[in-house]
């Protein structure tokens, strides 16, 4: 019922979302050379999904991006960051000392920074989605108090 009324929004957002995702990826991987990096890319990547959730409803968003997945990504980002630190320990350097990650220090630094920024991006992305879904899930539970089970499912995160 709500969906049919928002024709313009639906069409425009469907057109926009791929470009937002592409831009987020650009910001993520080009952050070493221009402005950008994991923090910004994570938020932009999440904003595409937030837009999707706002237009098509939280249930649809949760089908595309189930809560177990966002929780996994949330933890995976932090673990990737700390894992790079542990890897450099294992290879004989200090914690988070990327010099030892490759045969020459400059390449090691590049690998280290790219991995670490990717970890930051993952966590920020999943964090924003998680927080947004928690708030939106509460609102959904307010609208349908008669269906606590279903509201529990959508708000489950």
């Amino acid at each position: 019922m709500m969906m049919r009324r928002k024709m313009v929004l639906r069409v425009v957002s469907k057109l926009l979302i791929p470009f937002i995702l592409l831009f987020a990826l650009y910001v993520q991987w080009h952050g070493d050379f221009g402005p950008g990096g994991g923090f910004q890319a994570g938020v932009i990547f999440a904003s595409a999904f937030v837009l999707y959730g706002l237009i098509f409803g939280l249930g649809t968003l949760r089908t595309a991006l189930p809560s177990w997945l966002t929780r996994l990504v949330l933890a995976a980002g932090v673990l990737l960051y700390a894992g790079v630190g542990v890897a450099s320990l294992m290879l004989g350097g200090n914690f988070l000392d990327y010099d030892v990650l490759a045969h020459n220090p400059l390449h090691g630094q590049h690998y280290g920074i790219i991995l670490v920024e990717f970890g930051v991006g993952l966590t920020v992305f999943a964090g924003i989605i998680t927080i947004f879904c928690a708030f939106a899930g509460r609102a959904a539970a307010d609208v349908n108090p008669s269906e606590p089970e279903q509201a529990g499912d959508t708000g489950n995160d």
Binding site: F39, V124, G127, I131, A134, F135, R138
Partner: peptide
Amino acid sequence: TAIVVGVATTALGLALVV
């Protein structure tokens, strides 16, 4: 980094408000 921590604390504060 402070900006990102700022939005994290804002989110937590808003959750408490709810």
